[in-house]
Design a protein around this nucleic acid. Sequence first.
DNA 1: TTGTACGCGTTATCAA
DNA 2: TTGATAACGCGTACAA
Lengths: 367, 367
Amino acid sequence: MKKYDEKPSLEGVGTLMADVARLAGVATSTVSRALANPGRVNEKTRARIAAAVEQLGYTPNAAARNLRVGKSNVIMIVLPGSLHYGASQIIPQVLEAVNRTVIRSGYNLMIANLDRDESSERHILDLAFGGTIRGALILSSQLPVVANRSLGEAGLPIVSLLLDMSDSSVPSVVTNDRQAVRDATRQLIALGHTRFFYIAGPSGNYHDVERFGGLVEALQEAGLSESDVIRSGGDLSYQFGFQTGLQAADDFAALERKPTAVVATSDDMAISFMSQIQKMGWRVPQDVSIISFDGSPVCAFCAPPLSTIEQPMEQLGKAATELLIALMENSGHDGNSRIVIPSRLIRRESIGDQRPNAPMPRRTPSS
Amino acid sequence: MKKYDEKPSLEGVGTLMADVARLAGVATSTVSRALANPGRVNEKTRARIAAAVEQLGYTPNAAARNLRVGKSNVIMIVLPGSLHYGASQIIPQVLEAVNRTVIRSGYNLMIANLDRDESSERHILDLAFGGTIRGALILSSQLPVVANRSLGEAGLPIVSLLLDMSDSSVPSVVTNDRQAVRDATRQLIALGHTRFFYIAGPSGNYHDVERFGGLVEALQEAGLSESDVIRSGGDLSYQFGFQTGLQAADDFAALERKPTAVVATSDDMAISFMSQIQKMGWRVPQDVSIISFDGSPVCAFCAPPLSTIEQPMEQLGKAATELLIALMENSGHDGNSRIVIPSRLIRRESIGDQRPNAPMPRRTPSS
DNA sequence: TTGTACGCGTTATCAA
DNA sequence: TTGATAACGCGTACAA
C-alpha cells in the first residue's frame, strides 16, 4: 500500500460519495443511482441517502463525473476582443441573458475573449479540445484556428450570436439589421431627407455590410443611389464608439454639402457625434436627423432623445443559448439553421422633418 | 472484459496521451512529465514528444487532470443579481479586467449570478463544493449560504471586489469612496453650495454608507450638518439607475427650498436626473450642480458634460484577481488584507459656482 | 432493488 | 532519465 497524496480529496470538499454510502448503510453505486435516477431506488433507502447527503453537506465532484461520463456541463461564450467595440452597451446585456438561460438549464458559463492574438486563440482551443466545454457561443466573426486544430473541428456544437455564419454551416441567431435600416431609412426619406451620412463600425464586418446594405436599398427604392450617402468611420484603430463619433463629426463638418440624415451603427457613436456637432453649431433635429443602433437606455436621456434601433438582446441571448443546448443534447444536429429576431426602431425626437413645408425651419449654422 | 461505453473518449477529442506516447515511442508517464516539467526529461525525447503532440493536435483532458491533482483552474466571479443595478456601466469593465488577468495567469473564468433566490445560491455552492472552482471573486455583499453549506466554509480563497468585507475576514479590494466624496463635497462647498441632494442606490449598502458618510463628513467640517442634505432614491424596486434618477427629479421638484448641489451614486441616475430637471426648467450648472459616480465615458458627452468620480475598474479588477491568485497559490493566506485603490473626480461643466459674486448668475425657474 | 467491479485520462510514486 | 502502476471520485454494466 502506498501513500500518494497528503490530502485525500479536494481542499475543503472532504465529503465523498463513499462517506454518504457508509452513513446510509448502502453501496456507493446505490448513492449514485439515488442521486441521478431517484425512481430506480427504493423510496426508503432513497430517503436515507438523501438524509445522509444533507447531513454531510455532500456535493458530487464535478471533475470525476465529467471524466466518467465524458462530457462537461460548461458552455463557453466567446466575446470579441474588446468588450466595448463600438457596441459597449450590448455585450453586457447579451451576457446576462445568456447566463440566465445557461444556469436555468443546469449548465455553467465560461467566458473567453477572442483577441486577435494567437495566445487567446490557443486558449479557446485548449478549452474545447481539453473537454472543458460542451458547446460554444460565438460573438466573433472568425472561428479560432491554430496550427492543426480549429474550433470547427473540435466536435462540439457551436452557435453564432449576432453574426450570421449560417453560410459557413454555423447555426446563427441574428437580428434583421438590413431590414431594420431599410425601414428606418424609408421613414427618413418620407420626411424629405435625400442626403445621408453613415457612420460605420469596423468596416467589412457582417453588421456593417448588412446595415449599409439596408440603407442603400432604401435609397435605391426611392430613386436615390449609393452616391447619396457619405461614409465615415470604419477605422479599426478607434476602439471606442465615442471616438469614432467624434471623428465622424469632424468629417461631417468638413463636407461641402451637408447631409441631413445620419445613420450611426452604434449608440456610442451617435451620442458623441451628436454632442460634437451641436457644439459646432448644428441643431438636432432641425439641421440634422440622427438614428443609431443598439437601443441603449441612455438614448432616452440625450438632448434631444436619440432614435435608435433596438437590438433585442434578451431574446437573442435566450434563443441562441436554447439552440446551442438543443444541439448539445440532441445529437440530431440539423445543420445550418438560422434564427432571425426582429429589431425595431425606437423613434424619438432626434428625427426631424426636412420637407419644404415642414413645421420646423431649417437653417445653416453661422460658422 | 466488458464494453462499458460506446465512445472511447470525449466527443471529438479523440487524441489521448497514450496516442502521443505510442507515436513518440515512450510511456505515458514520460509524456506527462515532458509536458508538465520539461526540464526533467531528456531533451531529445522531449522534442520527439513535442513533435508527436503537434502532429496529433493533442490537448490534455482537463477533467482527468483536475481529478488527479485535486484542483481545478477555474475562478468564479459572482456578480450581483442584476448586472445593471444602478451601476450598469461598471460591471462590464470590471469583468473585462478580471478576465484578462485570469487568462493571463493561466486560469479560466466562470460567471455566476447571485440573485436573491435559493437556487442561484445553491448553484454557486455546488460549484464551490463540487471542486469545479478554485477560488471566487465576489461582487455581492453576502456570501451564499444554503442549509449546512456556506461559501465561506468551502475551503477556497475568496476575494471581495468593490465591497469591503475585510471585517468579515474576506480580503477585499475597494475604492476610497468615502474620501472621494468628501473631497468632491469640499470642492462644492468651496463654490458656495450649502444645500445638498443625495441620490442613493440600494440603501444600507456598503457603498451607500461610505458615500453618504463622506458627504456628511465634509459638511460637518464646514460647520454644516446632515440636515443640510436631502436623501432620495434608495428604493430597491428601481432596478435601473435611470428610473431612480427620474424619481429623484420628481422628489427634487417637490422640495420647497431647492438644494444647489446633487451627488448621485451612479452615472445612470445622474444622467436621467439631469435630463429630467432640465426639462422641468432648471439649468445645470447655474441652478444645480451635479456630480455622480462611476466615470462612464458617456458622461463626457452629456449637456453639460457631467462630473463624475471615476471608479478605476481596470486596476480594481486586476488587483483583486492577482490577490485571489496569490491566495490560491500560496497557502500562506494572510487573512484580512484590504487593498484600497483611489478614485478621483473628473471635474466637468456640471459643477457651477454659487457664491454671491460668482461669474454666472443664479435664477429660479419660472414654474 | 442493490452490490461488485471496472475504467474514464491523467499525474505521481517508486523502482529500474 | 524512463517505465510500470496505482490512485483521483464517480457512473454503469452486470450479477446477485
